[in-house]
Design a protein around this nucleic acid. Structure first.
Length: 488
RNA sequence: GGCGGCGUACCCAAGUGGCUAAGGGAGAGGUCUGCAAAACCUCGAUGCAGCGGUUCGAAUCCGCUCGCCGCCUCCA
């Protein structure tokens, strides 16, 4: 299995520190506001990475933190007239609500910065002891020149960074690049007691302290959005490696951005779409598919159109699945003569190396190429349809298709897309398209129409059809039944 | 200014040295059907921003040009 490692800038063969076990840490969110689709991307992408590693048989310890104390939370609390911890609590809840709807699994450990003040203080004190940090008036700074390898993740050199510095430098720092490990608190701000006086942790130190506590000194995988590479992750490396004298992370993974009009979606530009407002119009599965149809390191241009296309794509998938289910459970009476169309065994439907499962794993093994993996899903769907077009009958054909379906379900479990039943999908569409009809009501009308058709009252039958059509439901007459679809 | 990425069919997108350049959406043709719709099948780039080079062979490697974007500041 290969993973693109930001540290080396290339794909590397993945070998965990301890055989069969993986410690993985993902930078979560600062809970000062609701999440936008960019946060969703990071969460969904690394959710799939985790699921795939588990699928491969690794014992994965997955840690994702919440930054629950920070300047932005304090400012937000002021703006909302609430306490800082009420703000953090509120947006933590909203985070969970969004992520659960998107099918993102909770982490094994979900540490909060404020629950690790003791570990953070130990770490800061240790860095001072080792000569990598210094305190001034209650603040503590990391001394960047004390760590010669600084810049190795983001690929920049110290002097270059100084030349491009765009931020006002605190004159008390020994070096302009030094960053805060501990910030003294002003009057009225949340504070914890420390050897340097009351204060709160700097942003970067919490991840070092928490990852070390929950996963040990060296992590297998550390992941987050590409905007965290500098300075956040660079600083984490400096702190952790200066303290431990050991490599901090073996594989760094970073996801690409969501853009709007080709520009990075961000709070400051105001061009962001919240998860909530997107899920108000689109099904979560369509959102997830949309995010996974592009490789995780490439940018994704956001707009409604691709989400509508993703919805249409899911229609194709669930149509195929329904057809398969119909075949497997309805139109395959026992005792019918055997007819298993030849020529499919060696293709994607078969269990050979060119079969679906092998291709799926090959795609995922190559730096989690979900876009290619999803492509294989639809190759399989197409081939399945072609197979069914041959009107197969009998036990052999059934077993053949059951195996194909099994492979599909394994992939669905990893992606957490394609994971519902066709009926569940239709119900979800009914809801998201805000069609004011119940399944029972639709089926009653279909029954009425069936009777009308039986007595050749096509006027009445067409009337019912157009009545449903107006409400957004299309009818499909099959051989001996009528199915309904939500129109898109 | 420094560092990095991207440019593949009408749209999205995979592919980073060698079989027919995946897959989805849209479109066209066909099958099915009381009619219809849907669904399914088929079709679709002699071509991979442009120009040059390396190679038996390049979308894929190298150089230059054009266009777009990111990081260097909080940011998923």
């Amino acid at each position: 299995m290969k993973i693109f490692n930001t540290l080396s800038g290339r794909k590397e063969t993945f070998v965990p520190l301890a055989e069969g076990r993986i410690g993985m840490y993902v930078c979560g969110v600062t809970v000062y506001d609701v999440c936008h689709i960019g946060h969703a991307r990071s969460a969904v992408v690394f959710d799939v990475v985790r699921r795939y590693l588990r699928y491969k048989g690794f014992d994965v310890e997955f840690v994702k933190n919440f930054t629950d104390i920070d300047d932005k939370i304090i400012n937000r609390a002021r703006a909302e007239g609430a306490s800082w911890d009420a703000v953090a609590g509120k947006y933590t809840e909203k985070y969970y609500a969004d992520m659960h709807r998107l099918g993102v699994e909770d982490a094994d450990v979900e540490p909060r910065a404020t629950e690790h003040i003791k570990e953070i203080i130990e770490l800061v004190a240790g860095l001072i002891e080792r000569g990598h940090a210094y305190s001034i008036d209650g603040d503590v700074y990391f001394s960047v020149p004390s760590f010669p390898e600084y810049g190795k993740l983001s690929g920049r050199k110290l002097d270059e960074m100084l030349a491009g510095a765009r931020v006002e430098v605190d004159p008390r720092k020994k070096n302009p690049m030094d960053f805060a490990l501990w910030k003294s608190s002003k009057e009225g701000e949340p504070a914890w007691q420390s050897p340097w006086g009351p204060g709160r942790p700097g942003w970067h130190i919490e991840c070092s302290a928490m990852s070390m506590k929950h996963l040990g000194r060296t992590l297998d995988i550390h992941a987050g959005g590409a905007d965290l590479i500098f300075p956040h992750h660079e600083n984490e490396i400096a702190q952790s490696e200066a303290y431990n004298s050991k490599p901090f992370v073996r594989y760094w993974m970073h996801n690409g951005f969501i853009t709007v009009n080709k520009e990075k979606m961000s709070k400051s530009l105001g061009n962001f779409f919240t998860i909530q407002e997107i899920l108000d119009i689109f099904d979560p599965e369509a959102v997830r598919l949309f995010l996974l149809q592009t490789h995780y390191r490439s940018p994704i241009e956001f707009s409604n159109e691709p989400l509508e296309e993703a919805t249409q794509t899911l229609v194709r998938y669930y149509q195929g699945l329904e057809r398969l289910d119909d075949f497997l459970f309805l139109s395959l009476p026992e005792g019918k003569k055997e007819n298993c169309p030849p020529g499919f065994e060696d293709g994607i439907l078969g269990g050979t190396p060119s079969g679906f499962k092998a291709r799926f794993m090959q795609a995922m093994d190559d730096d989690f190429n979900t876009a290619l993996a999803i492509g294989h899903v639809f190759e399989l769907v197409k081939e399945m349809n072609r197979f069914l077009d041959q009107a197969p009958t009998g036990k052999k054909a059934k077993e053949f298709l059951l195996r194909a379906k099994e492979g599909l379900f394994e992939a669905a479990g990893v992606l957490n897309v394609f994971n519902r039943t066709p009926a569940e999908w239709q119900r979800a569409l009914l809801k998201i398209k805000k069609i004011g009809l119940e399944v029972a009501g639709i089926e009653r009308l279909i029954g009425e129409r069936r009777e009308a058709r039986a007595r050749k009252d096509f006027l009445r039958a067409d009337e019912i059809r157009s009545e449903l059509e107006q409400k957004g439901i299309a009818l499909e007459d099959k051989k001996d039944s009528t199915a309904w679809r939500v129109k898109l």
